[in-house]
Simulated assay, not measured.
Amino acid sequence: MTLSAKDVIAILGPVDETRIADILATEATVDDLAEAWAWINSDEALINAGRSLPSGKVADLVDLLSTDMDEFENEES
């Protein structure tokens, strides 16, 4: 099943409409976004658990979300 805006907000919390549109444009699933979010927040734990590196839509989402995280951190500095 493809993501909805409500799914994105449920997984990521408050997100601006542009970012929601970018995420929805990937045509990822709820599971894809949840896995990408897990990689963003605990990549070391997933690697230690023997999980293979993200690929496909999950990797695209990781890149997209990582860019957001970098921009957020730069704004705080």
Rank of each mutant, 00 (worst) to 15 (best):
N74R: 14
N41L: 09
M69P: 00
N48S: 09
A21H: 13
A34V: 01
E17H: 08
G13W: 06
A10N: 06
N41R: 15
T26I: 09
D43G: 09
A28F: 03
L53H: 14
L46Q: 12
D32T: 09
R51V: 03
P14V: 03
P14Y: 11
D70R: 11
L3R: 00
A5M: 04
A10H: 12
L3G: 00
D63K: 08
L46F: 02
A45C: 03
L53D: 15
L24A: 09
D60G: 13
P14T: 12
T18L: 04
K57G: 12
W39E: 00
E35I: 01
F72H: 10
D70H: 05
E35R: 08
T26D: 15
S4Y: 03
E17M: 03
S77L: 03
V15P: 03
L61A: 12
A36T: 04
T67Q: 09
E71I: 06
D22P: 00
E17W: 04
L12M: 12
D43R: 04
W37R: 13
L64I: 03
E35P: 00
N74Q: 13
R19Y: 06
I23Y: 10
L12V: 01
V58D: 14
G50H: 05
G13S: 10
M69D: 15
G56H: 08
S55W: 07
E76D: 11
E73V: 05
A45Q: 14
D31Q: 10
